[in-house]
Amino acid sequence: MSKIVVVTSGKGGVGKTTTSASFAAGLALKGFKTVVIDFDVGLRNLDLIMGCERRVVYDFINVIHQEANLNQALIKDKQCEGLYVLAASQTRDKDALSQEGVERVLNDLAGMGFDYIVCDSPAGIEAGALMAMHYADEALVVTNPEVSSVRDSDRILGMLSSKTRRAIEGREAIKEHLLITRYNPNRVQEGQMLSLQDIQDILRIPLIGVIPESETVLQASNQGLPAVHMQGTEVSEAYKDVIERFLGQERPLRFVDAQKPSLLKRLFGR
């Protein structure tokens, strides 16, 4: 029985695709057969982050329109066993996603024995985002510690509980997880960013992890490597914690406390 997880946020640029890539890679590293689908038709990015852009021949839209089959369109990841990418089409727009088509592809993937299907949602609250969340069993809501991002995540949470298949059919609600990205404890302490407490006070869903703000993310995406593979970095460790918590393990929160500047820094400034 495969599980469908949507990575969503409402707001753009908060780290949905970075998270989708690292989350899917992390699940695959744990031995689960995983596919990550780019729903951002027309603005495809996932293949760049995953470093497989040169191997995209057929995409998600081709499969929906039955111009190619899944075996032709699934791109096997080079870093980890059991991870596949289904790229978005760059030349089409969101209208090319039909609900029946998406459902058929998801069912076919389930039939191929995938444990997890990770849906990388586009920003916004329009057709593409609705389609990405529609069939989800669980949701990672990616939020930055700033007011507009929290507001947009709140809006998305409202849609998860009213516009998705589980909501419409009155089944058990989608399991929601809050993932805070680009968290900078020092800036929180200086009052320039919302704190974990502020965010949770508004959104009130369980926190699955906090990814610290870091240049590692930019380096990783430039290399076409999911950030979880950047061994020894805080970002990689934080994503690994997220995977463990998602799989039911307890992990203490890390990288959320402000660092006192060292004596030299205090003397000479930054």
Partner: peptide, 8 residues
């Protein structure tokens, strides 16, 4: 009985 979120 449910939370009302932004936009609802």
């Amino acid at each position: 009985d449910r939370p009302l979120r932004s936009g609802q």
